[in-house]
Design a protein around this nucleic acid. Sequence first.
DNA 1: AAGACGGGGAT
DNA 2: ATCCCAGTCTT
Length: 375
Amino acid sequence: MNDNENKAYYTRELTAWYQRGNRDLPWRRSRNPYHIWVSEIMLQQTRVETVIPYFNRFMEKFPTIDALADAPEEDVLKAWEGLGYYSRARNLQAAAQEVKESYEGKVPDTPEAISSLKGVGPYTAGAILSIAYNKPEPAVDGNVMRVLSRFFLLEDDIAKPSTRGKIEKLARALIPAGSAGDFNQALMELGATVCTPRSPHCLVCPVMERCGARLEGRTDELPVKTKAKPPRPESRAAAFITDAAGRLLVRQRPQDGLLARLWELPHVPLSEGGREEASREADKRALRERLAAEDGLRVVPGEWLTDAEHTFSHLRWDMRVYRGRLAHEPGEPEALPPAYRWMGRDEMGSYAFPNLFLRIIQGEAEAAAGREARA
DNA sequence: AAGACGGGGAT
DNA sequence: ATCCCAGTCTT
């Protein structure tokens, strides 16, 4: 029951377990701080298996900090397409430019400097310092909070920001001299592969003998975490408009906020709450009126095409998609409002779209191909 | 302290 | 349907 003894045991057994074998991941093949940095940004709220192909492509396209700093932002967003949390990509590039200008192109190795970079919070700072430079800094993520909460029987709500600090202090005390990087990775590896959120694999756990949660049969109760609020539903209508050349009318999203600077189909919010009854006609009227009022785009909505639903962390879009055409005076070439443009199928490979719209566009392309084949 | 910010895989 | 992921930034 000795606390210090438990800590020493934990550090010893976990480190030995990790050194006996761990996953072969692309960013573990070197100690290149740039590789570690990019991987840690991508891994924020994102699974290892999801990140691997993105990481490999990213390193091919942007092999060095300089290459990333000098690339067009559009290319960086495209490389991030589908990964989500797009501010990570914009912050990463801004930070690469900062590293190039202020740190001679080398990822800094002090807590102050590394933490000052955009997109680098307490977890990522600790991860880079420990993994790339073997500095004895804690790297506390969701895995670490779960794993330590269980072993040390911590009842604190891990959804509360204050809990992080407490667990960080514990994690710092556990770091073995000279092996900070391996130990921190071991902690996360255990959480990802053994001490999983549900149905943990206690029988193969290297620290099961002294795990508080297992000994008390409380692995299902720990860690304590308050539930998140469900996403708020939002109905929207989108316009699928093509020109004679088959190009699609798209617009770029604003500089900030949700899906910033990505491309999308023109669409408008519909009345929320669902008090008035939804109808095709109401959708089309909203599409026509709101695109005209907000963007100065005059469209004539047509037949219903498809529905698409997409859930974000905090909201859910129920998108209804209508074919449409531009309303313009006969013989007068319409001028598109700012942020709008026609985009050919071949060009879409160069611009980043949120998955929701990729699915809609892809689905329509397949439907068109089907019509073509039958005709 | 709470909300914004993507998308997908596991149960 | 629910959880939650190698979190950070803004308010």
